[in-house]
Amino acid sequence: MQLLKSVGLFFIQPLFWAGILMTLISYQLRLKNERRNFRIAIDRDFYEARHFIKHGLLFLVLGSLFALIFGLSLPTQTLVLYQILAVVALLFINVGDLSLAALLVTGTVTFVLSETPFGSDASWASYILPHELGTRFGSAILLLTAILALFQAFLARENKAEWFSPKIFAGKRGRRIAGYTWREFTVFPLIMFIPGMNFDSWQQWLDPSQYLTHFMVVPLFVGAFCKIYKQQPKEALHLRQRQSYLIAFLAGLLALVAYFVPVVGFYGIAGLLLILVAQAFGRLKADHDAKRWYVETSEGVRIVAVKPETPAAKMKLEVGDIILECNGIKVATGDELYEALQKSPAYCRLKVKNFEGELKLAESAIYADSPHEIGLVLFE
């Protein structure tokens, strides 16, 4: 009965419904942006919802396993404050990622308010400040940060370049530039022990009554975001993944130290917040320092996007590639490309220069009598 009640409470939490709402909004914004820029939706699949559910279930299993093994526990008041900040962070998922920051700010605010008269003596503070902070509070926040950072790295590892949604901007000298945005997020339930449960013997692990009366199901938000103008999608994702792994390693190490030296907890949390800010600037710099733009070119036809499960996708054409020749005919515009496709309406052969300037050949059967459905999205 306690298990069912805890699960039921998860589905009425504001953070969970904010996640559902933002999934719908992100999908609609993506389609609206693509139709405004290209008159079509590049991928009408509602993959945002599929990823939200799939990752939520996966992180439920893995996260709860971590939490149960390490006896992870946080005060109820801290979870209330976290949920407020996580909802705010979730509302900004289409412009940036603040999922780890929401948790670290929760820890920082709790530490600061609990040590100042403004917080500890105020009547309102009882809603967000625990009655007793405990010596392992900082370690718990850091351990949970490490878990979320690992999940964030997983999001960046799994996703593909086809989920970078393009948007057209006016560039210098009258040429247009494509920029790309990628986001992934989910809200997942985490089974967590409430404060006061100690594990002094292995017999407590084997007693089911210990779990049914001493845990709660907590909603957690994890997300990742990339916006690029010059980097390749794979490079941006790889950098995002490496940064998340670094946070996970540092947070795990600091959690271990803070377990034995509690004062390290506050400084570790504050330090990780500064590192998150530095990483955000690092991503901006990496994109700024990249060598090429996704810009219109007179050399051939620049590929802005590739529709999934089309002949273009089967030919492994990528964002940023320039089609120089089609069926032996040099092309410089989209109209010239589709005219060349008509020369062989059931098969096409392309000469392509990739984003690094290397030449490659690509060929595939195409839809008979429908060369425009090859799956390429070009500058209109």
Rank of each mutant, 00 (worst) to 15 (best):
V187H: 03
A270W: 09
A149S: 12
T76H: 11
T181P: 02
I40M: 08
T297L: 06
L74A: 13
P219F: 09
L378R: 04
L103G: 07
Y245D: 06
L274G: 15
D369R: 05
I191V: 15
L324K: 06
L220S: 03
T186C: 12
S370W: 06
A156P: 01
T145H: 04
E184D: 11
V88W: 09
K234H: 08
F249Q: 02
E34V: 10
A89E: 03
L239M: 00
I128P: 04
T78V: 13
F199H: 08
Q152K: 15
F215N: 03
Y229I: 06
I322Y: 05
L3W: 11
E235C: 09
F379Q: 00
K230W: 06
H214K: 13
S370Q: 09
D121Q: 10
A41I: 00
E339Y: 01
G265Q: 03
V306W: 02
A255M: 11
E356H: 05
L98D: 02
L272Y: 12
T135C: 06
P262I: 02
L81Y: 11
L143N: 02
T108P: 05
R136M: 12
L91H: 09
L15S: 12
Q342C: 09
W17N: 12
Y127Q: 06
I84P: 02
S26L: 13
I69M: 13
H372K: 00
P195T: 00
I275F: 12
K32P: 02
P130R: 07
E358H: 07
A286G: 04
I322C: 04
R157Q: 13
S139D: 09
Q203S: 15
F185P: 08
E48T: 06
A280H: 12
D200S: 14
F215V: 05
K307Y: 03
A161I: 00
G171D: 00
Y259R: 15
P166I: 07
I366E: 01
K160M: 10
H288F: 06
G134W: 00
F225I: 04
M22N: 12
P308M: 08
D97I: 01
V263L: 13
E318S: 08
A140H: 10
L324Q: 05
M192T: 03
Q342H: 10
T310I: 01
Q83L: 11
I147D: 08
Y27D: 04
F281D: 14
A248G: 01
V264E: 01
A122R: 01
V61D: 05
